[in-house]
Design a protein around this nucleic acid. Sequence first.
DNA 1: AAGTGGTCTAGACCACGCG
DNA 2: GCGTGGTCTAGACCACTTT
Lengths: 240, 240
Amino acid sequence: MGDKKLEKHKYRTIRDYIKKRIQTGKYPIGSYLPSENDFCNRFGITRTTIRKALDELLKEGFIVKEQGKGSKVIERGKSLGLLTVKGISGSIDYEVETIVTEPSRIARWDPIIPFTLTNEEQKSQCVYFQRVRNINGHPVVLENNWYSLNALGLIESDEFVDGSFFKTLSRKHLIEIMGAEQELRSKPASIDVAKKLNILEGAPILHISVRFRTSKPGLNLYGDLYCDTSEYPIRNSYFL
Amino acid sequence: MGDKKLEKHKYRTIRDYIKKRIQTGKYPIGSYLPSENDFCNRFGITRTTIRKALDELLKEGFIVKEQGKGSKVIERGKSLGLLTVKGISGSIDYEVETIVTEPSRIARWDPIIPFTLTNEEQKSQCVYFQRVRNINGHPVVLENNWYSLNALGLIESDEFVDGSFFKTLSRKHLIEIMGAEQELRSKPASIDVAKKLNILEGAPILHISVRFRTSKPGLNLYGDLYCDTSEYPIRNSYFL
DNA sequence: AAGTGGTCTAGACCACGCG
DNA sequence: GCGTGGTCTAGACCACTTT
């Protein structure tokens, strides 16, 4: 039965309750949520309220609705298209392998980050790690990542779920990506990048700088990616 | 008074009515829509229905809501972040100038387009035009565009509103961009591209292939863009 | 036929912005 | 204080999917 406390914003409480159950696997991906009427009876609310909650989960990419059937839990990001790292690591139809080349460690902020750090971030140390994405055995993306140590603490890179930091955040810490800003540049590969991607120095490389905003206040993820697009272009898509 | 016919989906009828008035400037950008209660009285509906209509306009980026004040009409795309051409032509904080280098003309589909054309598109001829975007007087983006002649007819490039094809579609034809698919590649500039962007042959260039889906059935816009990112990186952002 | 989500009505009270 | 949008109730009927 409904054991939640329902305050002023019932739909938010219920939305977060359902979200949490999805994140922790209690409503597994591919399964259907209880019906709207179920939720109404369980929580003593009206359909307007549960529908508002489900609408938000729909917008956030946790569920899809199927008329006459129910609300289905989906893998988040599949519907978000524009998640850059998704576009890189998720939406390519090939076998993708993630290798941690620099395990997560406490470090100083790298001046290569083109975004303005918050005061809290500047005062904090940061956590850094580096990975390479292989497609069909060939290195294609070199990815540096940073985040504020004070905002999250050190997450060991060998705890990553499927090599994915985002999945780790969602499944283990209930933190979701809420948005991103990016800068894209085409430039010649440096010696260092060329070596790690097994290409010639000076070959054209796609350089992506990105800041992800998360659902945890004060926590941003910074990324610095070098993509060899000669074989596998970066794809993404979005729809209203 | 409400002179609209209201059938099964009242909120859609009202949504489209309001959308049309925004597109044609009858609800000007920056102004506030009539209040929800106004609409209720005018159309003989309840707030649930008008709010559903406004919600959709909000999602589609036509308005923003301000509690205690009203629903404000905004320039569409400002809130959509990820619109590629927006990211290129709209969201850079510099003076952007658009020059039509190849006026729109009827042509054959260019095999460089990496997307699969629909049957209708293959059977139709296409309209082609080319533009260059200058920032602070320097050429930065070379942009080729195609669309199916049968789906829209020839739009003369000297009719473009502010040099923008999208604005032209919205203001003059009430057609909106509903989504996009992209492929990004970093590659050396060809002689031709290098000449038009005033850079060295072989310099790294960002190549973007894009297909925009529109609100008009059967109409897609195809783009092939070459961006010199050495001075001005491509930026975009999105938020839930 | 039964159950699901989709639309809609006719109210109510609250929080916010502004004069 | 008044008008605005934000939340919520308690119903109703419809369209779609499944049994």
